[in-house]
Amino acid sequence: MILSALLTSVGINLGLCLLFFTLYSILRKQPGNINVYAPRLVAEGKSQQRTQFNLERLLPSPGWVRRAWQPSEDELLSILGLDAVVFMRIFIFSLRVFTFAGIVGIFILLPINYMGSQLDIDFSDLPQKSLDSFSISNVNDGSNRLWIHFCAAYVFTGVVCYLLYLEYSYISSKRIAYFYSSRPQPNQFTILVRGIPISSGSSFSESVETFFTEYHPSTYVSHSVIRRTSRLQGLIGDAEKLYRRLADLKSKNHAQQRFRRDGFLGLFGRRVGLLDHYEKQLEDLEDNVRMEQSSLAGEEVPAAFVCFNTRFGAAIALHIQQGVNPTEWVTEQAPEPHDVHWPFFSASFIKDGFSSSGLLLHVRFLQFYFLFQL
C-alpha cells in the first residue's frame, strides 16, 4: 500500500464520518422525524412535535454526543432495558480488542518488520513508496523474528478468548440479575403451540384442552386458540390512526379547525368540519370492529397460546417433543404481546420451513458477498 493512498483513504473516511454525524444531528431535530429518533418518548408522552419554524433546527450541534456518553449502565438498564446494555458492551469489547491489537502491532510487530532487510526500499520519496517495509514481508527468510509474529498471533487469540469469557460472564450475570429483579411477564408462563392436529368432531380448542390436560395435568392452566384476524387488525389500525388525528385536531385551537367535503377524495359533497367528520368515521369503525369480532367464532388456525402456573412448567413443555410426528405440536417460546405478528400463525409448517430456509440462505449470501468484497 502506498502512503499517499493510505492518507487519502483516511481522509475520505473521516470526511464521511463528519458528514454522517452532521446529517444525524440535523435530521434528529426535525419534527417529522421524532417518531423515528425518539419513539419511546413519543409513546410515553414526554415529547411532542413542534410546528414552529426554528433556525436552530437546520444547524448541526455536537451536544448529543456528550449526552450519549453520560448515562451509566444502571441508567441504561432502568430506562432502555437489557438489550441496550448488551449493545453498549459490544462497543466496549471491540474497543478492548482493538486497543490490545494496536499496542501489540505498533510497539512490537512494526519495529520488528521495519528492522528487516528482505525488501530494498528507497525512502527518498516516502509519500509515493509502498508501506511493505512495515509488514511481515520485510522480515528476512528464515529469521527467528518470525516466531514473534507466531507468538503474537497465539497471544492475541488467547487474549480475545479471555475477553470473550469475561464479557460472557458479565452479561450472563446481568441477565440473571435483570431476570430476578423484574416482574414476571405473561410470556414467561406461556408457550406457543403450532401444528395442532384435529380429529373429526372436535375443534382445535378441544384438542389442546385434551392434550395438555392429559400430559401436563399439574402445570397446565388454560389456552387461547389463535383466530384469523387480518381484517380485524386492519380495522383496529385504521381506528388508531383516526383517533390520533382526532386527538391532534382537538389539541389545536378550535378557531383553526379546517373543513372539507364529505364526498369522493374530499372534492365533492357537502362541506363539513373535520372534527365531526372524524368522529363519525370513528363511530363507523367501532361498529365494524364489533361486527368483525362477533364473526370470528369459527375462524380458528392450528396454533394456540398455552399458559402454565409456573415458569418451570412452561420451560418443560417448551423443551420436550410433544408427539411422535415432529410437524405436530411444535412448541416455541411465546413472544411478548407487542411483538406478536398475527399473520405468521396462519402459515403451514412447510411454508414456515421454506420461509426460514430462504431467510437463512439470504443471510448467508450477504455474508459471503461482503466477505468476497473485502
Rank of each mutant, 00 (worst) to 15 (best):
R261W: 06
S9I: 14
L366M: 09
K129R: 14
S78C: 05
D122H: 05
L77C: 01
E56K: 10
I236Y: 07
L163H: 14
R245V: 00
E300F: 10
F259T: 15
E209A: 14
G323C: 07
G269L: 10
N253G: 04
T327D: 07
T157G: 05
V340D: 03
P71F: 11
F259I: 09
T327K: 15
H338W: 08
C151K: 12
E292H: 02
Q49H: 07
G102M: 05
T190E: 00
N33Q: 03
T219V: 05
G11V: 08
S143C: 02
R270E: 12
G269M: 05
F93G: 01
I12A: 10
L6G: 02
I171Y: 01
R260H: 09
G323M: 03
Q49D: 12
M115C: 10
I196V: 06
L164W: 06
V193L: 04
V10R: 14
N13G: 10
L19P: 02
S94Y: 14
V86G: 00
N138M: 03
S230V: 10
L359H: 03
S172K: 15
S172G: 11
G63P: 06
A239S: 12
L3K: 08
R66T: 14
L23T: 04
S61Q: 15
N54I: 02
S202Q: 13
M1F: 15
I316A: 12
R228G: 03
H149Q: 02
V104G: 03
H254E: 15
S199W: 00
L55Q: 04
S117F: 01
V193S: 00
A317K: 00
S4Y: 15
G105P: 03
S4H: 12
S117M: 09
P71H: 05
I26A: 01
A239P: 03
L41F: 12
A247G: 04
L27S: 05
A334H: 01
E283K: 15
F368D: 07
L6E: 03
S357Y: 07
L371N: 15
S47T: 06
S230T: 13
A317L: 02
F189T: 02
V85P: 04
S348N: 09
M1I: 07
L163Q: 14
D248T: 08
D120H: 13
V340Q: 06
F20W: 06
K252Q: 12
W69Y: 08
G263S: 07
L163K: 10
N54E: 15
V301P: 00
L76S: 08
G201D: 07
V10W: 11
P197W: 02
H277G: 01
Q373C: 11
F344I: 01
T310N: 04
S224R: 13
T331M: 05
L285W: 06
L163R: 13
Y220D: 05
G353A: 12
G15Y: 01
G353H: 05
Y168S: 08
I226K: 02
L59R: 11
S133K: 10
G298H: 15
A153C: 06
L76V: 03
D122N: 13
I108F: 07
